[in-house]
Design a protein around this nucleic acid. Structure first.
Lengths: 119, 119
DNA sequence: GGTCTTCTCAACCAATCAGTTGAATAACCC
DNA sequence: GGGTTATTCAACTGATTGGTTGAGAAGACC
């Protein structure tokens, strides 16, 4: 919910390895070792990635002997989607209004509007 | 579309100032100076933030004399939403199946399942 | 042409990050 | 108890990041 957590969630998913981990956890829970296997980085590195994901609230873990199986917390995704949707909608609405303005100006003398090329 | 751009988009939105800028651009286009005004950082810092947003494809700019008004590119949000939705759905589906398994086991002797507390 | 405005580029700095290796913790298995 | 397995903690390293200041570049305005 907090601005801070939103930052952590986005930052967590900015890394392709972490997104990959999320993808795999979506299929099913897995231990650190299982998650580390496909990558040629140390287990400690993957453990760190998982810590980042946990701090963002995207992942939780339980305990099974020495193992600490990771579990994807899907609900946090909603927070992100809510944020994204808000601004996407707002921007689309604005675009729709601009279209209307341009159309109404078409009826008149239509002064040139700077709708310049991107970059 | 590329894995790389997805990383850049998430990374761009991991910063609260940049999210703020996106929020303001959703309301309407604005120049660097206008965007910088509310923050007590240099214009150059905001210019850098805008470069990050542009590299991620979230923002574009046109030219109006010395000014380079920024414009929000709402379509990139769809890419993010698509990514998020995929794994959220997958995780929810899995959760639903787990529920079904647990329910079916209820009919039998029901061995204990480790559904331990998170961190 | 000179000056003001708007913005970017370049160099620098402190902090954070993703990776490493090595040691420690903790619970299993014989 | 001794060894193996699974994982984390700690210290280090090189790269990236968000900020700074100073110097352009490009165009308006007089």
């Amino acid at each position: 919910m907090s601005e801070d957590q939103l930052s952590r969630v986005f930052a967590a998913l900015a890394d392709p390895t972490r997104r990959d981990i999320v993808a795999r956890l979506a299929v099913g829970d897995a231990t650190v070792g299982q998650l580390a296997a496909p990558y040629n980085v140390s287990i400690q590195a993957v453990s760190k990635h998982l810590k980042v994901l946990e701090d963002a609230g995207l992942v939780s873990h339980s305990q099974d002997a020495q193992r600490r199986p990771r579990h994807l917390e899907a609900n946090v995704f909603d927070m992100m989607t809510a944020w994204i949707e808000r601004y996407r909608r707002q921007a689309e609405e604005r675009y729709r209004r601009l279209d209307a303005v341009l159309a109404s100006m078409d009826e008149e003398s239509k002064p040139t509007i700077n709708q310049g090329a991107a970059s």
